[in-house]
């Protein structure tokens, strides 16, 4: 039944769109499905403009994309779970992780809605608000924003922070923020899945934690230094540490064997003193040694 229905009812624009999607799937190595649920459409325009050279973004119906994908030879069973809600389809030849990084670094801001948390410090700047004196005065008062009335308009007398990053934004102030053009909430395109070179990469994997990479690099480097020192690998950056180790070994040996030179005297007497203090400390509760023991 559905077959006959489709054959008769598919409008031309749908056929055209599937064809276009198929061309893009063929043309680009990476296809990313991004959720538009709760995403302001005007912001999509900003993203398009910013990344015009590296990606194409198309908003389309899930069914049409699914059909185009299937006809392009993609195993749709692996992506159909992501084809719900409103989606944008990003086409690019870049590595999907790079696209994810680019998008996450591009800060898009929007106006606050009641119930939002601030993504950055929200400051009500000093100056004329243009708001007529009236009930808003008490709203400002409640939020401890100093005001005075000038020419029948509310003027704020001092820059005032109304929300720190992560804090909820007082709902009363939301209209004021709009009026003042303050956008304290970030919007981010949520990437649901990437298809790239026959690989399906779920969205959560696409988020690279650069700090983790940095600490892994550091750890690897330290491991390399440690191993290098262990085998006295002749490379300047390792030798510096190895020389220090050899020096401290020599000092420790001088200290423990009581071998005194002007260089080792400090080590020798420090070792002896540490032992003397430890012993003195161990009996200081019972004996008056007539000395001050650092414990």
């Amino acid at each position: 039944m559905s077959l006959t229905v489709k054959q008769h009812k598919i409008p031309q624009w749908k056929i055209e769109e599937v064809k276009e999607l198929k061309e893009k799937i063929k043309q680009y190595k990476t296809v990313i499905i991004a959720s538009l649920d709760g995403f302001p459409t005007d912001k999509l325009h900003e993203i398009r403009k910013k990344f015009r050279d590296v990606m194409e973004i198309k908003v389309s119906k899930n069914r049409l994309f699914e059909r185009a994908a299937k006809e392009s030879g993609i195993d749709v069973s692996k992506i159909e779970q992501y084809l719900t809600g409103t989606n944008a389809f990003i086409f690019s030849n870049k590595n999907p992780f790079e696209i994810s990084l680019m998008l996450s670094k591009f800060k898009l801001k929007r106006y606050a809605l009641p119930g939002d948390k601030a993504d950055e410090e929200v400051v009500i700047p000093a100056g004329d608000t243009g708001i007529p004196a009236g009930p808003m005065i008490s709203v400002f008062g409640k939020l401890k924003i100093p005001t005075r009335v000038q020419d029948g308009k509310i003027t704020i007398t001092k820059d005032t922070v109304v929300a720190e990053p992560g804090q909820p934004i007082p709902p009363e102030i939301v209209p004021v923020l709009q009026k003042l053009g303050i956008m304290p909430v970030y919007v981010k395109l949520r990437l649901k899945v990437a298809y790239h070179d026959n690989l399906i990469i779920p969205g959560e994997q696409l988020e690279l934690k650069l700090d983790d990479y940095k600490s892994q690099i550091l750890e690897s480097y330290k491991n390399a230094l440690a191993l290098g020192v262990e085998i006295a690998y002749p490379e300047p950056e390792i030798l510096k540490i190895t020389l220090g180790k050899a020096y401290r070994n020599a000092m420790a040996l001088a200290g423990e064997s009581g071998y005194i030179t002007p260089e080792s005297a400090q080590a020798v007497f420090s070792a002896a003193l540490a032992k003397a203090y430890a012993l003195a400390g161990a009996i200081s509760g019972k004996v008056d040694l007539g000395i001050q023991i650092p414990t």
Binding site: E219, A226, L227, E230, I241
Partner: peptide
């Protein structure tokens, strides 16, 4: 390198590596 590493318990060395005085390498 292969000969030298044969005498080393690498896992042991890496365990202590976090304590590595990287500062010593600083003048580089």
């Amino acid at each position: 390198v292969v000969a030298a590493l044969k005498e080393v318990n690498i896992d042991e060395v890496l365990k202590n590596a976090a304590a590595m005085p990287v500062a010593a390498a600083a003048p580089a």
